[in-house]
Amino acid sequence: MGAFRFMEILAWFRAIISFLIIIVIWQSIALLGLVPEKYFPSILAIAAGFRDMVISGELVSAELRTLSRALLGVASASLLGISLAVLGDLFPSFRRGFAPIAALIQPVPPAALVPMAVFMLGLGPKLYAFIVILVTVWPPYFNGVAALASVSDVQIRTGQMLGLSRWQILRQIKLPAAMPEIFAGIRYASSISLIAVVVAEMLAGHDGLGFLLIRKAFAIRIPEVYALMFVCAVNGLIMNTAVNGLRWRFAGWQLRMAGQAA
């Protein structure tokens, strides 16, 4: 336990140091004038831009909208992906029929969907739900299908021997066994969902971080643009933390086992 604590503190320490180094490098580039100051503002200017946007309230509302869209989207996409994977596990013919559809839809970029979806779904929440779910449902689905199919026979037979029904085997043996891999998919999906939301906001939105980013860029408010990029990166960290927390809850058995072994 003590060693674990120490490692944690060390990781934080390293993060702070690397952050400081970046600030020093950034500031010296800005001060030396290697790059035109207009395009490469100092940290102070960026912080001032950040403060202005917070005071005017536009940053907070945009941030809340973008984050809630991404979180809601990835949550519903994960539930849908897991349900589809379970369905595919129960009915192999569904899985085979769904495979070509999934293979065709999966490589379509969110940006390509936005212009067409606008006509059918308008500019409201339906648009974001459609884009995010259509783009992020695949990692949990594919990982779920693969993981459910590769649960060890011994475990399933043990369940049968204990007289569990098919549903109980799925619920108590297969799904828990598949959870670590499903969560790997959800983690990937959460980073794509953030991308999809920002892209949709940039192309079709009238609010949110993506829209604010484009508007500030066209107004040539460069410090604000950098501040917004920073906020976008922080969003990624927030999503990661949320997914990791849930993972501990649903697939924690694997981590605990790994911890014991070490």
């Binding site: 690397s18 990029m229 990166a233």
Partner: peptide, 19 residues
């Protein structure tokens, strides 16, 4: 030292760098 910076860049959606 650079690892946390990489982690941070990894969470930045690529379209956000367009401006």
């Amino acid at each position: 030292v650079l690892e946390p910076i990489l982690d941070m860049m990894a969470t930045l959606p690529p379209p956000a760098v367009v401006p």
